[in-house]
Nucleic acid binder design. Structure first.
Length: 184
DNA sequence: AATGACAGTCCCA
DNA sequence: TGGGACTGTCATT
């Protein structure tokens, strides 16, 4: 298979649910198999106020709320809702997203390292594009991938968000219980 | 079918 | 410091 595993015009109708946080109202979109997309506060039409009635399993919503709120504190969510990445993304992009999920709180990597880890050391740019195509930022932690020079890089929700999330994780998580801190 | 643009990075002058 | 090649993907031409 090549790309978007078919649009399967079988209108897999997605349902929006509001996730209220101290940072604003996020919108979680669900298919019948899981969370497909997470919209940040104020991100256009998709962030319109969702209806109160929906058929999304309460456990999914509960887990999503817990995960989003925890991640916004810079901490690690205990559990995630089921994720449905079947309707978007190429094979390469899915591999990138899967690799992202192994990054732990407070841990960063670079686009180049990601590319190398996926066996295409030259495809650093493509990794950046794949990160930008991540439909579930925050929970799939694309903000932990930074550039090799400035240490930040772009972010689909704006670099300010990326910076904020990294700072919170730096404060809330111990990045390296490795050795005693060296001079700096 | 070719081109341009995109959340990068390395190399060479 | 600056330009080019490289990679994956997609909208446009």
């Amino acid at each position: 298979m090549k790309k978007t595993a078919t649009k399967s015009r079988g209108k897999a109708k997605l349902q929006p649910v509001a996730i209220h946080t101290p940072d604003g109202r996020f919108i979680a979109w669900y298919s019948n198999t899981g969370l497909t997309r997470l919209i940040f506060p104020g991100q256009g039409a998709l962030s319109a106020r969702p209806p109160k009635d929906n058929t999304v399993p309460g456990e999914w919503v509960g887990r999503t709320k817990e995960a989003v709120r925890t991640a916004l504190l810079g901490e690690t969510p205990r559990t995630l809702p089921p994720l449905d990445l079947s309707t978007v993304g190429t094979d390469f992009q899915k591999r990138v997203w899967q690799a992202l999920r192994s990054l732990r709180c407070g841990q960063t990597t670079t686009y180049g390292e990601m590319a190398a880890a996926l066996g295409s050391p030259q495809a650093t740019r493509a990794v950046g594009i794949a990160c930008g195509a991540n439909p579930i930022p925050l929970l799939i932690p694309c903000h932990r991938v930074v550039t090799s020079d400035t240490g930040l890089g772009g972010y689909s929700m704006g670099p300010a968000w990326k910076k904020k999330l990294l700072e919170r994780e730096r404060a809330a998580c111990k990045p390296k219980p490795k050795m005693k801190p060296r001079r700096r």
